[in-house]
Design a protein around this nucleic acid. Structure first.
Lengths: 337, 337
DNA sequence: TTGAAAGCGTTACCAC
DNA sequence: GTGGTAACGCTTTCAA
C-alpha cells in the first residue's frame, strides 16, 4: 500500500528498520525467525518499498533508458521487442524515449546522463554527440548503440556495405544487368548512414560485375511507403525499364511492389525486387530481402548493457546478414544461366 | 553533471538552496538578478536535478506506466505511438511494461500501485483484477484502459459488436451469402474478448439477413499469421467454398490472403476478404478492413490519463469505426445487384 | 544478529 | 525575497 513505509513494517514486526531493509535485500545476516516476523509484517501491511527512496539512497534506479526514432521504421519495433524481453528479464524497468524529430535529440542524452534518470542507456539507430558521450562516461552511465557505429562506444551493428554487395550479387546471379536502386535520402538530420553504405556496397559490386548502376536508376527518397511508391513509379517508367530493383529497406521495397502492381508489371516475372531488414511485413508480402537479426540485435544490445551495468567490460558485436529468398526475385527472362 | 547537487549550485551562486529550488521550479518569487546568478551557476556547474530526490520529496515521479501485451499484435504498436507522443508532450516519461505471458500480469499492477513507480497507468488491452483496481484507487494512482472495457475505470473502446455487424453488412451488400469467419480463440488467459464480440455482431447480422453463419465456416484460432494461414486453408477447402471471409484482425486476414494466394484462388475475384483494425500492413496489402483509430485511441487514452493526473474527472470514450474499402473485397460473381 | 543514526538531493514550510 | 531546516523512505555504516 502507498503510505506504508519501512518504519511501519519495522514497528509492526518489532524490529529496527535496518533489519527490515536487510530482509528486503536478502541479506543472510538475519535470523530465520526474525526474517519470518518481518515477512509477516510486510504481508499484513501490504508493504511495497518506494523505488524513489531506494534510488536516492543507492544511486541506482533499476531502469534503463531506450532512445529510439521509435515509429519511423518497423525495424525499430522488432529491435525493441528483443530489448524489452532482455531488459525485463534482467529485472530492469524500461524507460522509452521516442524521438520523432531530430531537435528532440538535443539535450536528451545530457539529461539522461545526469544522476538519477536511468542506470544505463540503449540507443537505437541514434548516436550521442561526442560531448554527450563524454558526459555519459563522466557520469558513469554506460551506453550501448544498436544499429549505429561509434568509434569508442560498444555497438551492435551489421556490415551495411556487405549487405549492399549481397543484394547486388543475388540480382546479378539471377542474370539481371539493368538494376535500379532505391534508398533513403543520404543527408538527414539524424545522421543515419546505413542506406548510403548499402548503396556503396551495391554500386561497387555492380561495377565490379561490369554492370554499373546507371545514374537514372539510382533514387534516394525520404523514408516511407508513400515516397517509395512514387520513386518506384519513376523507375518503372524508365526506358529501358530496369529488370530488378534493390531497395535499402523492406518498407521501400514494399512500396516498389505496390507501384509495380499498380502499373500492371508482374513480380517477379517482369521485375525482381529485393529489400533489406526482413521485417514481419516482408514475410507477409513474400519479399526477398537481405535479412538482419532485428530482434536479436536488440536482445544482444540489452544484454551487453546489463553486463556493463554489472561492471563487465563489453565490446562491439557485428550481426550476420543473409539473403532470404522469397517470391519477389527470379531469373531474368532470357538471361543465360 | 552527476555529483553536482543543488547545494553546490547554491554555494556557487551565493544563495540558499531554497532559492535555487525556486528558480528550478519557475517560482515568480525570485528577484530577476538573483535568478540570473542562479542560472549562471547552474550553467557553469552543468547541473541537472536528481529525479529520484525530486520524486522522493514531491511524491511524484513524472512518469506514467504503460502496460501492454506489446508484441502480440501490431495494433498495439500503433496505439503505443499515440501514447508515446502524448505522454512525451505532457512532459512525462514513459515506462513500458511488456507482458508476453499472462502470468506476468500477476502482481504487476500491485507493484505499480505502490508508491513511487509511476504517477499513473495506461493499460492496453489488459484489465486489472478488481483487487488491483481497488489498490490503485486506494493508492491514488489513476489508470485508463485502452481497448478494454471496465465497469468503473475510464476506458477507450470501440463497439466490437457493431464492428462485426459492419463487416457482415459490407459482405452481404456485395452479394455474398456463404461467408466464413476467422477469429481468435475465445478462451484466453489475458481475457481478451473483442474477437468474440465481433463474431457476435457478425453472426447476428448474417442471421438477420437470412444467411446464417454455417458452423463449418466459423473458425477460432490462436492469434498470429501462421495459425491464420492454416485456418484459411481449411476454409478454402470447404465444399462449397465460401465466397467471402471476415477475419477479426488484419493479421489474420493477411494470413487468409496468403493462403488464397498459395491455393491459386484469386482475391477479390473468387474470394473477398475483410479484416479488422486497419494496421499499416493492411495498407501495404490493399486489405479491405473495419478500421478503428489505433493511434488516436492511444493518444486519447494518454490525454485522459494526463487530465486525471491533474485532478480532472475523466470519462470513458468510444472510438468510431469505419469500413475502409481497398482491393480485397468485391461483388460476388453472379450476385444480383 | 540487530538497532540507531547518518546520509542521499530535493521540496516546502517557516522565519526573517 | 530569501535562507535555513525538516521532511521524504530507503540503505548502509557503526556499535553493541
Amino acid at each position: 500500500m502507498k503510505g506504508t513505509t519501512i518504519a511501519k513494517v519495522a514497528r509492526e514486526a518489532g524490529v529496527g528498520v535496518g533489519t527490515v531493509s536487510r530482509v528486503l535485500n536478502g541479506s543472510p545476516a538475519v535470523r530465520a525467525d526474525t526474517r519470518r516476523r518481518v515477512l509477516a509484517a510486510i504481508d499484513v501491511l501490504d508493504y511495497e518499498p518506494s523505488p524513489a527512496a531506494r534510488a536516492l539512497s543507492t544511486g541506482r534506479t533499476n531502469a534503463v533508458g531506450v532512445v529510439a526514432p521509435f515509429f519511423t521504421q518497423p525495424s525499430v519495433i522488432e529491435r525493441l521487442r528483443g530489448v524489452s524481453r532482455t531488459v525485463a528479464g534482467g529485472g530492469f524497468q524500461l524507460v522509452l524515449h521516442d524521438l520523432e524529430r531530430p531537435e528532440q535529440k538535443q539535450g536528451l542524452f545530457r539529461i539522461l546522463a545526469a544522476h538519477g534518470g536511468v542506470d544505463g542507456l540503449l540507443s537505437i539507430s541514434l548516436s550521442p554527440t561526442d560531448d554527450d558521450a563524454h558526459r555519459l562516461q563522466a557520469a558513469g552511465v554506460p551506453i550501448v548503440l544498436i544499429d549505429r557505429h561509434h568509434p569508442t562506444l560498444p555497438c551492435i551493428t551489421i556490415d551495411d556495405v556487405e549487405g549492399g554487395r549481397l543484394a547486388a550479387e543475388h540480382l546479378l546471379g539471377l542474370g539481371h544487368r539493368r538494376i535500379a536502386f532505391l534508398g533513403d535520402e543520404e543527408a538527414n538530420q539524424f545522421g543515419f548512414d546505413s542506406s548510403a553504405c548499402r548503396r556503396e556496397g551495391f554500386e561497387a559490386a555492380l561495377a565490379a560485375a561490369g554492370a554499373p548502376l546507371a545514374p537514372e536508376c539510382s533514387l534516394r527518397r525520404p523514408h516511407g511507403p508513400d515516397a517509395a511508391r512514387g520513386a518506384a513509379s519513376e523507375l518503372l517508367a524508365l526506358e529501358p525499364r530496369p529488370t530488378a530493383v534493390f531497395a535499402t529497406s523492406d518498407v521501400q521495397a514494399i512500396g516498389v511492389l505496390e507501384a509495380a502492381h499498380a502499373a500492371g508489371i508482374a513480380v517477379p516475372e517482369e521485375l525482381s525486387v529485393i529489400g533489406f531488414d526482413d521485417v514481419e511485413a516482408a514475410e507477409y508480402t513474400g519479399l526477398t530481402t537481405v535479412a538482419q537479426p532485428l530482434d536479436e540485435s536488440g536482445a544482444l544490445g540489452a544484454e551487453l548493457l546489463l553486463r556493463a551495468l554489472s561492471g563487465e567490460a563489453v565490446e562491439s558485436r557485428r550481426m550476420p546478414l543473409a539473403i532470404i529468398e522469397r517470391a519477389t526475385t527470379a531469373r531474368r527472362v532470357g538471361a543465360v544461366a
